[in-house]
Computed example of a mutant assay.
Amino acid sequence: MIRLTKALNAWGTPEFEGALKQEIEQLDGAQLPLQQGLKTGSYALAGHKAMLISTSEDAGIIRVKAGIFYSGILTGCACADDPTPVNEESEYCVVQLDIDKQTAETAISLLAE
Rank of each mutant, 00 (worst) to 15 (best):
A44V: 04
I24Q: 00
I62W: 12
K39M: 04
Q96W: 00
Q26W: 04
I108C: 01
A50R: 08
D81E: 11
K65N: 05
G29D: 14
C79W: 09
L52E: 04
S71A: 13
K6A: 10
L74K: 14
E89F: 04
K49S: 08
G72P: 04
K6P: 02
L38G: 10
Y43Q: 12
G76W: 10
I68T: 06
N87K: 11
I2N: 02
A30G: 09
M51Q: 15
A59H: 14
L27G: 14
P33A: 00
E23V: 03
E57Q: 13
R3E: 09
T5I: 14
Q96S: 06
S71W: 07
E113T: 00
N87D: 07
A104L: 09
M1K: 15
C79Q: 12
A80F: 05
L110N: 06
N87C: 09
S54W: 09
L45F: 01
M1E: 07
N87R: 11
G67A: 14
E15S: 12
G76I: 11
A50S: 13
Y43D: 10
I24R: 01
S56F: 06
D58T: 13
L38Q: 05
K65F: 01
L74N: 15
V64S: 03
K21P: 08
E105Y: 11
P33F: 01
H48M: 09
I68G: 03
L27D: 05
S54M: 10
F16W: 01
S71C: 09
Y43W: 07
L45D: 06
Q22G: 07
F16V: 00
S90K: 15
T75G: 12
G18R: 10
Q96P: 02
I24F: 02
V95W: 04
F16R: 00
P33C: 00
V64C: 05
L8M: 06
K39D: 08
I99M: 12
T106E: 03
F16A: 01
C77W: 11
G67Q: 11
L52C: 06
T40L: 12
K49T: 13
G41N: 05
F69Q: 10
A10N: 04
E57K: 09
D81H: 11
T13F: 09
Q22N: 07
L4K: 07
L38V: 03
A112E: 15
Q36K: 14
S109M: 10
A30M: 08
K21Q: 15
D100C: 03
T55K: 02
R3M: 05
A112S: 15
L111Q: 03
D82K: 07
K65R: 13
I61E: 10
R63S: 14
L8P: 00
A19Y: 00
S56R: 13
P85L: 10
T55D: 02
V86P: 13
E91W: 02
A80I: 11
T5H: 14
E23F: 02
L38H: 07
I2G: 08
T5G: 04
K101I: 00
E105F: 04
E57L: 13
S56N: 06
T13S: 15
A59E: 15
L52V: 13
T103H: 03
